[in-house]
Amino acid sequence: MTVIRVLLADDQRVVREGLALVLGLLPDVEVVGAAGDGAEAVELAVRLRPDIVLMDLRMPRCDGVEATRRLRQRAPEVRVVVLTTYSDDRSMLEALRAGAKGYLTKEAGGEEIRAALQRVLDDGAALDPAVQHHVLNALTQPPPVKADELLTPREVEVLRLIAAGLSNGEIAARLFISEGTVKSHVNHLLAKIGGRDRAQAVAYAYRNGLAPGE
């Protein structure tokens, strides 16, 4: 019988201890360690080399997605199965893109977790039925349009200067165009990004790497 060596990562001590107790009752699962945050999980996984890290998403210092990403670089043979209370599209997709091989909610019981661990160990994938529809939703959504594909080069210039805190008059002087032209560019780019005002334009610039210094 192959024993699955598991490392637990959750910032709540009661959850870690509860999981260790439940998994410890299974004959083919061995809990080799427990971490209270993502950074500790990575260090322990690199040192202990478990088969699988059972990873929470919301943790201090380093969350589960970033920890999964670091593990893929530092210990690619260690698989990650997310075990979390979050089953929304964004959390799930971020985890899977970071390299997680499974995604379970904390409503899963011991046998469900064990079965998921075994599937992942066998190079499969394990998705809780409660989150499978999120995968389908994500696959049917069109990919987001990149900022440099959505906006003209001049609109990108104007957006960068807005994010830098310049007024329309200052932008006009910087780009050697009229203030009326600047206003036109601002109105066009706001319409394209679905923004109502300059604050939302600044937020868009930061999200898309168009802010000063990025």
Rank of each mutant, 00 (worst) to 15 (best):
A75C: 15
A75Q: 12
P76A: 15
P76V: 15
P76E: 15
E77S: 13
V78M: 14
R79L: 12
R79E: 14
L83E: 00
T84M: 06
T84A: 07
T84R: 06
T85R: 11
T85E: 10
T85L: 13
Y86S: 02
Y86N: 03
Y86P: 00
Y86L: 11
S87H: 07
S87A: 14
S87W: 03
D88L: 02
R90D: 03
R90Y: 02
S91E: 01
S91K: 00
S91G: 00
L93H: 01
A95H: 06
L96T: 02
G99M: 03
G99A: 05
K101L: 14
K101Q: 15
G102D: 10
G102L: 11
L104Y: 09
L104D: 06
L104R: 07
L104F: 10
E107A: 10
E107C: 01
E111G: 04
E111L: 14
E111V: 10
E111P: 00
E112F: 12
I113R: 10
I113L: 11
I113T: 08
R114P: 07
R114G: 06
R114Q: 14
A115T: 13
A115G: 11
A115E: 15
A116D: 03
A116P: 03
L117A: 05
L117K: 05
L117G: 01
L117W: 07
L117S: 05
Q118Y: 12
R119E: 13
R119W: 07
V120P: 05
V120E: 08
L121W: 13
L121F: 12
D122I: 06
D122H: 14
D122R: 15
D123R: 14
G124M: 09
G124P: 08
G124C: 11
D128V: 01
D128A: 04
P129C: 01
V131M: 01
Q132D: 04
H133A: 00
H134I: 12
V135A: 03
V135S: 01
N137V: 08
N137H: 08
N137S: 10
A138L: 02
T140V: 12
Q141T: 10
Q141R: 15
V145A: 12
K146H: 09
K146A: 15
A147V: 06
A147F: 02
E149A: 14
L151Q: 08
T152D: 05
P153W: 07
P153V: 05
R154W: 04
R154S: 08
E155K: 05
E155H: 10
V156I: 15
V156K: 03
V156G: 01
